[in-house]
Amino acid sequence: MDTVTANTRPDLRVSIGGLELANPVMTASGTFGYAQEFSNLLDLDQLGGIIVKGISLEPRPGNPPPRIVETACGMLNAIGLENVGVDRFIKEKMVWLAKLASPLVVNILGDSVEEYGEIARRLDQVEGISGLEINISCPNVKKGGVAFGTVPTMAAEVTKVVRRVTELPLIVKLSPNVTNIVEMAKAVEGAGADAVSLINTLIGMAIDAKSRRPKLANIIGGLSGPAIKPVALRMVYQVAGSVKIPVIGIGGISCADDAVEFLLAGATAIQVGTANFYEPAVTIQIIQGMEDYLRQQGETSIRDIIGTVRTGAEV
């Protein structure tokens, strides 16, 4: 092993199914707007990748307020996928986004398999888009509202349809609200996904005891933040051990140590979500902290630590 001196810059480059990242740190969809919102507070070009807010075929107004509530070490949200729709996204947001140096991944969502396919088709040739992430946590309206992400055959079908219309690197974002997430990962891998990202939010609820009312207008919402990290880490560990495609770890990552833990569990890259809200430049701190970690561990490349959690009797 090479000796790493304090002056050597460790190699942070990783590859996600054809997506070459300068470092493994990306921003999670829905927590970073369309990136421009953060442009005064951090250098976006230093990010490994940017994943912008989920885009649907038609604009969506989102859910009635209140939409968010803070919980112990986390928050619940029921934003309702408010977004400008794919056409306005291309026309209004891409002009600015295309100028960024970091790879841009667009998160897509739909009510039907056909909608996913149509959005992917419209985004396919747009300049400045480096990849797509499919949000399968949405209800399939045509199949009685069962979430695509909870039935392996439905998740595979969405993946196949999108795969057919684009050659862009394809990430499928998995929902943790399933009995067996490994089964979901295998299903989308078999359907042509280049990578899986996990986890999306855990479904939760908060009630105001005094008024006896739910704290969210939508009654239930998605839990995110440090509170969900152990669940996410476990799922990443299980999935990474069962699929051949790269895994992107998401769930409560708030500092470099958190990010490193996900890599040790088998993730090739990570996404930072809720932490962007309260510490807009946290991703930059995580990138710097990862370099420090590698120096301390005497490693030259971040790739050498992926999946190296010591679970056996190694010394």
């Binding site: 927590t31 707007g33 507070l41 009635p64 307020p65 968010i68 928050m75 408010e82 809200f277």
Partner: peptide, 22 residues
């Protein structure tokens, strides 16, 4: 005044009903 997660226009949590939509 509303609850807000980011204050930057990213979380879309601080919605109120406006004259035409949120």
């Amino acid at each position: 005044e509303t609850h807000m997660a980011c204050g930057l226009g990213a979380c879309l949590g601080c919605t109120v009903a406006g004259k035409d939509g949120y």
